[in-house]
Amino acid sequence: MVRLILPNANEGSHLPLRGLAEAGILVALATVLSFVKLYSFPQGGSVTAGSMVPILFIGLRWGPVLGLLGGAVYGVVQLVMEPYVYHPVQVLLDYPLAFGLLGLAGLFRARPALAVTAGIGGRFLCHWLSGVIFFAAYAGARHPAVYSAIYNGSYLVPELAVSVVVVSVLARMVSLDGARHA
């Protein structure tokens, strides 16, 4: 399965150096933006200053593979900064995988709004799944699936709105083809 995504991973570095450098710096930018909170919810979770936008841009400019890898790296950075550890599998699901799926944006490079929705949708799916599996006991009277969707939607939907606005403005100013730009 992994081999299908990365067909010639053994033959040295097939990822473009320019893309690698850019992904690293965009992960740093995402981390910086995650400190700028637009809105904090009382029950935890917050809307950041479009902190997912740099990661979405890795996917948009360099395609889904680098987007996925960059997102996973961002997930690990988030884990090191604010670990929220409940179970080893939950950690995998909530950090590298959830943020990695932001790279799905790279599948729809021609349509930025759809790309943003796909990327953040992927992240939502991971957090939702983690909520259903590991935090079901906290759902109270509600069904765990509903509870998890409400909780994760409460910050990801506003975050999605912010990201769509910001990406559609930025997409007019920044080339969406990383390789051509270089």
């Binding site: 690698l20 710096i25 992960v27 740093a28 790296v73 961002y74 690990v76 950075v77």
Partner: peptide, 8 residues
């Protein structure tokens, strides 16, 4: 990538 990110 991680090293670059941490550096920047």
């Amino acid at each position: 990538m991680m090293t670059i990110a941490l550096r920047f």
